[in-house]
Amino acid sequence: MRCIAHRGFAGLYPENTLVAVRQAAPTADLIEVDVRRCGSGELVVHHDETVERLTDATGRVDDLTATELADLDVAGSGEGIPTLSSVLEAVPADVGLDLELKEAGLIRDVRKLIKGVDNEVWLSSFDVDVIATASEETDLPTVLIVDDSAEAGIERAAGLSCAGLAPHWRLVDFALLERAHRSDLAVYPWTVNDTGRAENMAKMGVDGIIADEPAACP
């Protein structure tokens, strides 16, 4: 079962920062980060549309330049909001990356940035249209994230030729796993932070878990 570090193990480190991905790398199989476009055009790694939750600044990510974002202080850590390019450079080649695409229109730039990268790379998203575009325009594995109907999620993911489904952990049961695996979909529940729950899911046969701390990975 694969251990996927949610935002670089956000339970331990300032999420989606360079220090998070560097610290997560020794214990994670893959590192999940959130990708969106900033005001100066670069792809940056940040979950929210705005910077208020994690910094003392205000404003939308798509209104701020990469330099302005890098100068911010994420959760009092001294770490700024990084570009995707800098994250790719920080992750060792033997650790994979799950790039959660937070908006449309990113695929072309993602393809350019990962060209020549040795890491395993997945593309994931809640947005069905984003996943459809990723499946059409790349050969990378795609993972559809769902937090509502498991059956509908399996149908959508299979129809889009996804490699996997990432359901909220509350949706996971033996029936979902059987249906997903029958459709050749790996299952990666999120966000699993309880060790006992993770162990039970491992016994059920999930293919990996997305966790905020490495201790949650059996």
Rank of each mutant, 00 (worst) to 15 (best):
V95W: 07
P14C: 09
D94K: 10
T50P: 05
V35A: 11
T83W: 05
L140W: 02
D207H: 10
K112P: 00
D194N: 15
V130T: 12
A25H: 07
L123V: 11
V51M: 05
A24F: 02
G78S: 08
K115M: 02
L123E: 05
P26V: 04
D34Y: 11
D207R: 05
T142R: 08
G116F: 04
S86K: 15
H181G: 05
K203P: 00
Y188K: 08
A28T: 06
S183A: 15
A211C: 12
L97N: 07
D73G: 06
P82H: 11
S183M: 12
D184R: 11
V128A: 01
G96I: 08
V192T: 03
M204F: 01
D147I: 08
W169Y: 06
S124F: 05
E213Q: 14
E49L: 11
P218Y: 00
I210G: 03
G159N: 07
T58M: 08
V19S: 10
A70E: 12
R156N: 12
L171Y: 03
L113M: 13
A202W: 07
L30F: 07
G11M: 14
R182D: 15
A163V: 04
E52T: 13
D34M: 14
L144Q: 10
E79L: 00
G76F: 03
D109Y: 05
E137S: 14
F174G: 13
L177C: 05
G76K: 10
H6E: 03
R22T: 01
L177R: 01
H6S: 06
